[in-house]
Design a protein around this nucleic acid. Structure first.
Lengths: 341, 341
DNA sequence: TTGTAAGCGTTATCAG
DNA sequence: CTGATAACGCTTACAA
């Protein structure tokens, strides 16, 4: 391979000058610069990033891990991440952890090995191998959490107000006359599930309907939503509304309802979360909470870059706006239907 | 940061010995090894991969680019890629090119800069910056194409028989009595679209129905499928069956049909391609071609690793089996319905 | 404006 | 089995 040495030799300058032409051209005389660039072109020279990184201790890369790349919500967040990273001159290394702690650790360890400058972690758990870095750097550790937020960890995070959003959904369902509402939660260990559950419970408590809340657990996938709905339909008192913590689970719920000949929204209201592309195309179109997915990604990168640049005042937590999107999957509840004025 | 030097010093051995303990422990005496490992543990030493790569000229990474990460088909392929890569000791760097040539070039250039050992390219175009590598290495260039295949390029590829699969779909539609069939294609520049179109046209030609073929173009997204269907519904002679080159476009087509009050499968049959998770949950469940997505990914990695290991007999093209999955979105065509025996 | 030279942290070679 | 030493290719004081 051609190295900067070859370039320098061919251009009749020192290695230092040749290197300068590439990194800080302003320092080099016009004529020399031109000559060097010509040679670079001619020899097809490309800087060996490994050697450069060794010298500078910067890789220009950031690692981003997601629990599940096939989850359309995360794909959108990643879009935002890539956009912002690229604009700031960073390349994105994406890792799918499949929600397996071992894989999370593996990707996080890349940071220890200095394969990237920083890391954005989209998911519930913070890998333990990051402890070393955090012990060393404290709140200045180049680690940002996206979508989820665990207070007290000292790790910056970009997300929406999950509790508030869940509260809104429940409130609107109660207002529509629903009383027996089921929640299809996400994985048990996620702060996100916990927050949304808290918000929903608060709404129920205000109406004195805590006892009417039904819970099922899913893993955000379509299939888990379908199963949860089946389980709910098998209960003695079937809910009149199901609030799923992801659009995919809501779509699974719609499929289960169709299968059980339960009409939506006439007999059953369904609400999702995220507002993925598919949400508006299913039958009936899904009422859901829209998250600013790309913005979450962009913001996470922004936070990380501030940390990497050594800024002192990096906010610990950025809360972005969400919005309840009303479509046709929600109808009036039985309470209102049964007592017309 | 602690380096191998610190470890060596603390363990009272030379740097070389300390390094050996980590890379080839068999070469070191039991006692020494133990002592060194203890120190490693104690100091929390992690090998600096940048320095190691500089020396070995291997990064242990492979780059994988996809046209669109939010496309569920690609997510599944990536799953297979990660699985196989990890098993072989490689980390996967994922890049979303958003179908933009500039981004493709950018990721491909990472290979020139030696940021990874090889590259798997899922998509239609081979970035031009790879020419340098290919010029140098010829067919031994560490580049593999997945899903698509461009003959004559000398780049190995893993994929299904796209032409054959499309032929099967068309044949089954014709057998069901359909005559006026519309195709919703993918992007114009992709070999994959070209192959499927050829297969479909061959099936039409055999029946003498080439003139009855209607064509619309999409970009594999739901929305593009919806638009294509709308355009088809607006034609004078509406097709009785629509074959979309992706499940997502088929789902968009279903939505458009619902909107136009066209019953599926009674009045319109719809076929997709890929068999993504969602396919079985939509209404009606989608007839489609199942691709062995994970297997495509695994195979692509296998090919790449063979190249990286210097094997001479790396196959140029691996064709994996597909399967027509019959669900409820296809019904009898008007030709049969109108002429009962 | 340009050149000299000293590393960055690792691994490979070659003696011992 | 272990140690000394020389790279790998680049960047960056510092000197000229």
């Amino acid at each position: 391979m051609t190295t900067i040495r070859d370039v320098a030799q061919a251009a009749g300058v020192s290695r230092a000058t040749a290197a300068r032409v590439l990194s800080d051209p302003g320092l080099v005389a016009e004529a020399t610069r031109k000559r060097v660039l010509e040679v670079v072109q001619q020899l097809g020279y490309t800087r060996n990033s490994v050697a450069a990184s060794l010298r500078t201790t910067r890789t220009g890369r950031i690692i981003v891990t997601v629990p599940d790349i096939s989850n359309p919500f995360f794909s959108r967040v990643i879009r935002g991440v890539e956009e912002a990273a690229q604009a700031a001159g960073y390349a994105v290394l994406l890792g799918d952890t499949r929600n397996e702690p071992a894989r999370e650790e593996q990707y996080a360890d890349m940071l220890n090995r200095r394969e990237a400058d920083g890391m954005i972690f989209l998911g519930p758990r913070l890998p333990s191998v990051l402890d070393r870095i955090r012990a060393r750097d404290g709140s200045r550790a180049p680690i940002v959490n996206g979508c989820e937020f665990t207070p007290g960890l000292g790790v910056s995070s970009a997300h929406i107000d999950n509790a508030g959003a869940a509260f809104e959904v429940m409130d609107s369902l109660y207002t529509m006359g629903h009383r027996d509402i089921a929640l299809v939660l996400g994985p048990a260990d996620s702060p996100l599930t916990r927050d949304r559950l808290l918000g929903a419970q608060r709404a129920a408590a205000i109406r004195g309907l805590t006892g009417h809340l039904m819970l099922e657990r899913g893993d955000f996938s379509i299939e888990s939503g379908r199963r949860a709905a089946q389980a709910l339909f098998a209960r003695d008192a079937r809910p009149s509304a199901i609030f799923c913590f992801s659009d995919e689970m809501a779509i699974g719920t719609l499929a289960a309802a169709r299968n059980a000949q339960i009409a939506c929204p006439a007999e059953l209201s369904v609400v999702g979360f995220d507002d993925i592309d598919m949400a508006r195309y299913v039958d009936p179109p899904l009422t859901t909470i829209r998250q600013p997915m790309a913005e979450i990604g962009r913001k996470a990168v922004e936070l990380l870059i501030e940390i990497l640049e050594g800024r002192q005042d990096v906010p610990l937590c950025v809360t972005l706006p969400h919005r309840l999107i009303i479509r046709q999957s929600v109808g009036k509840g039985p309470a209102i239907a049964e007592t017309p004025e």
